[in-house]
């Protein structure tokens, strides 16, 4: 039995300790907001927070987060400036990558409340969006941070 704290709720799960956190969240706990895109830490769709830091849950064995605070997209309050900005800028297209984008953006702003475009690139370049919503993501992060963007590739 491994104890997990996901979005403030304790869960006892009995899975092999090397099971990736992603699949425990999705298949055992039943929270499907966290997405699978590559399974190899290449796309960021599975990004969640562990103790406030953005990590890739597809390559994180569940045993590594035993007893730690895990936050998923469902655990970010609706009133969070990032979620609000995402709605204001109508960021999502297909939507599959967006939970990962939002988790990366919330972690970024928690660590760096006023990121410039370079800081945004650095924090976000690991989260792929096949629909190409990057421009709106940048705008939304600036909106949430109350900063302005020069926009586009430097």
């Amino acid at each position: 039995m491994i104890t997990l704290i996901v979005n403030g709720t304790r869960h006892q799960v009995s899975v092999p300790p090397d099971t990736p956190l992603l699949w425990v969240i999705r298949e055992v706990i039943g929270l499907t907001g966290t997405k699978y895109g590559c399974g190899m830490s290449l796309c960021g769709a599975c990004t969640v927070h562990v103790e406030g830091r953005a990590i890739r849950s597809c390559v994180t064995p569940v045993s590594a987060v035993a007893g730690k605070e895990v936050t998923t997209i469902e655990g970010i309050p609706e009133s969070h400036p990032v979620k609000q900005a995402w709605i204001a800028d109508d960021v999502p297209q297909c939507g599959w990558c967006q939970p990962g984008q939002i988790m990366a953006a919330t972690a970024l702003l928690a660590a760096n409340p006023k990121p410039d475009d370079a800081a945004i690139d650095e924090a976000m370049e690991g989260i792929l969006c096949r629909c190409g919503t990057y421009q709106r993501i940048r705008t939304a992060i600036h909106r949430a941070a109350g900063t302005t963007s020069k926009g586009g590739a430097p």
Partner: peptide
């Protein structure tokens, strides 16, 4: 505004892979 944005922002939008 897109009608599907809220569900895609809060993680409740259900895709094929999310069906159980």
């Amino acid at each position: 505004r897109r009608l599907d944005t809220p569900a895609k922002v809060n993680g409740t939008a259900i895709f094929g892979l999310d069906v159980a």
